[in-house]
Design a protein around this nucleic acid. Sequence first.
DNA 1: CAAATACATTAAACTATTTTAATAAATGAT
DNA 2: ATCATTTATTAAAATAGTTTAATGTATTTG
Lengths: 192, 192
Amino acid sequence: MREFLKQNIKKHISLSDNETDQFCNLFHQKLIKKKSFLLQQGEICKFEGFVTKGLFRVYYNDKNGFDQILYFAAENWWITDIDSFTNASPSQLFIQALEDSVVLLISKDDKEFAYKNLPQIEKLFRVMTQKTHVALQRRMINNLSKPAEERYMEFIEKYPQLTQRLSNIQIAAYLGITNVFLSNIRKKIAHK
Amino acid sequence: MREFLKQNIKKHISLSDNETDQFCNLFHQKLIKKKSFLLQQGEICKFEGFVTKGLFRVYYNDKNGFDQILYFAAENWWITDIDSFTNASPSQLFIQALEDSVVLLISKDDKEFAYKNLPQIEKLFRVMTQKTHVALQRRMINNLSKPAEERYMEFIEKYPQLTQRLSNIQIAAYLGITNVFLSNIRKKIAHK
DNA sequence: CAAATACATTAAACTATTTTAATAAATGAT
DNA sequence: ATCATTTATTAAAATAGTTTAATGTATTTG
């Protein structure tokens, strides 16, 4: 369903229907089964994606085997490893479906084509990257200045629907704590 | 000295001399004395800046009075609170000179003017924002997956010149630890 | 140059978070 | 339906990092 993609684009910039169509036609749909990977550590990320159904986690697996989740992407979210994609360097990240999912993917060549031929697309990605960056900056401040309990409370408040769809293991990996410690936090909160 | 700015731009995109000049002429120079502020919490950030001399810290002061440094900006680095600047919202951040400094500033209106009249500027900021975002993403992974000692070692390795110019208090605030704990780490390292 | 302020180090007590391990409940696969 | 795997919880011991406070040294500032 490219409709969701079109709506999403128009949330960021104003774009003629014609240009919108041209751009959206560069995307190809792909189905990803639960637990399979859209990207694995060491691969070069060759796509930028838009989730139309399902849920992904984008994470880093450190040398102790510990997963650190950078972000989740459910319906209407974009996913890529922007580092690997833009620099054509081996990715440090995994992108895995946590549910049976559907994404619309655009290749690097087609994106370059869009930059050249659809002038507004440059603005679209400038604006989107800015927003993503602001979000990450806010999260960075949060992570560094607030204790885990507060971060957990804010997470379930901010993403109630996502909380339902995620295991506590995943939420802990996003918050940067162990699932054991998250369990303690939950117990403490429940007693209030 | 707009020369540094021009060189910096050409590191990101290719731009005609004419366009480069037009864009660079939109910047105004400002001198900032050591310890004074380019931006304070609560203000709306009305500029995007390029440091030609000196050193700044961009930081968040949390409710416990603890400083959390988002990044440093020395010569040839850009500074702004992109959140406050793009959304015209009150900033959560302080930007303070740690040395007597000089910056080139562009206002929001002039930047909008550039977006409209100098088509390549849209690309410039898309590319720069992408790079900034990649850097922050890498730092996020680092922060969450490595202990403070390792992060400190990597910091002094990656920014040896900056290390010389910064107090350990500032470095600790960047690493997200107390200066007391940094002192312990340094002692431990010295004994090796 | 003297006084005041900022900086770096150390120690001791404290708190947040991890690690390991065991158990029970929920979910998934054959 | 059954067996295996994943998930959530709990407890106990260990570790990373904070807090407070004291001390000496370096750096500013009047």
